[in-house]
Design a protein around this nucleic acid. Structure first.
Length: 327
DNA sequence: ACAGGTCAAGTCGTA
DNA sequence: TACGACTTGACCTGT
């Protein structure tokens, strides 16, 4: 099985390259000249996009082929204060350039819109705002020339004291999600409410690819933790009709007392034994590393593969890529 | 330069 | 019903 590691939005190695520079709504509201305020936001967005490009150049040098774009590239987009703002016109060139770098390097790039996007909310305005946020994501992907299919990963949402009803509401609401948005989504199991099993069932019935987060699964599962192994063929199958390879998330717990928080680095024991099992079912997986030390955690894992891989049945290919065989 | 408080958005648990 | 926690980087204000 070929494995490509990726990291989340930022770098601890590239200085001054935040892709999430922003302005608070409060601050924006104090700017008397609204147009001047919008120009300022556009400037921040351009800097954010330029930061992404610098991060990708760094990744190019390290053969890292998987990258999560920040969902905060455009500050205050979708906020009522910026209603009617035609942000794409001034940003089109910057996005096109970013897209070119992504495509030239054959990088898998995607988004994880943050937790304010909730498709199963019983509150209508929340649902509608969520759709609007997703539309902005699609617009960014299109501006980069990246096909939006399966580029945005979401959680199922809230439980609202009744998981069954909450899942049913997701299904009901799904009927109102435009096809354009449906096709850009993936579903991920979370660490408190919807387990891998819940998420798998939902993604099967609605034909959505599922992103397995191993760390969330370890925090939140029914039955035995290892039961997940029986679900792997079905999770792999979720990707059979996708243009993209299967995707997973990995992180290590910060400590025994706060298992849910992410540690600085990935403990190889949290990842490789699992991959040895997964390799029975798929020839390829992309693994998003969610660690505090971002790209450094990927580099450290790569270093581990170089040094310890041989004796652990892992063959280093280059940068964040390696090959692993079933055990 | 730096520390400490604040920030658009949703949901959950506690009071 | 109201409020802090959650989680988290970046901004803002005061020193």
């Amino acid at each position: 099985m070929e494995v490509h590691l990726g990291h989340v939005a930022m770098s601890v190695h590239v200085a001054n390259a935040s892709p999430s520079r922003t302005m608070t709504a409060k601050r924006f509201a104090t700017i008397a000249d609204r147009e001047a305020g919008l120009r300022k936001l556009e400037h921040l967005a351009e800097q954010n996009i330029e930061s992404c490009i610098r991060l990708l150049y760094h990744n190019r040098a390290h053969d890292i082929k998987f990258f999560r774009l920040s969902s905060r590239l455009i500050p205050l987009v979708g906020h009522e204060l910026t209603e009617g703002w035609d942000y794409m016109k001034p940003l089109a060139d910057a996005f096109a350039k970013l897209g070119t770098v992504i495509k030239d390097d054959n990088v898998r790039a995607d988004f994880h819109p943050d937790h304010f996007v909730v498709l199963n909310s019983p509150r209508r305005p929340v649902f509608e705002t969520s759709l609007a946020v997703l539309r902005h994501h699609i617009r960014m992907l299109e501006a980069m020339g990246i096909p939006p299919r399966h580029r945005c990963v979401l959680h199922v949402g809230g439980a609202y004291n009744n998981k069954e009803k909450a899942i049913q509401r997701f299904i009901d609401n799904w009927g109102e999600v435009p096809e354009e948005i449906r096709s850009c989504l993936m579903l991920e199991n979370d660490d408190k409410i919807f387990t891998a099993e819940d998420t798998l069932q939902l993604s099967e019935s609605l034909k959505i690819p599922m992103v397995l987060d191993i760390h969330h699964h370890r925090c939140n599962h029914q039955g035995e933790e290892d039961d997940i192994l029986h679900l792997l063929p079905r999770i792999v199958e979720r990707w059979s009709s996708s243009p993209l390879p299967m995707k997973m998330h990995i992180s290590s717990p910060r400590g025994p007392e706060d298992k849910r928080s992410h540690a600085d680095y990935i403990n190889p024991d949290d990842l490789f034994p699992f991959l040895h099992k997964l390799a029975r079912y798929t020839p390829r997986v992309d693994v998003m590393v969610e660690a505090k030390k971002k790209d450094d955690a990927v580099l450290r894992l790569a270093q581990w593969v170089k040094e310890e891989g041989e004796t652990n049945g892992v063959r280093f290919i280059n940068g964040g890529s390696f090959e692993i065989h079933p055990k």
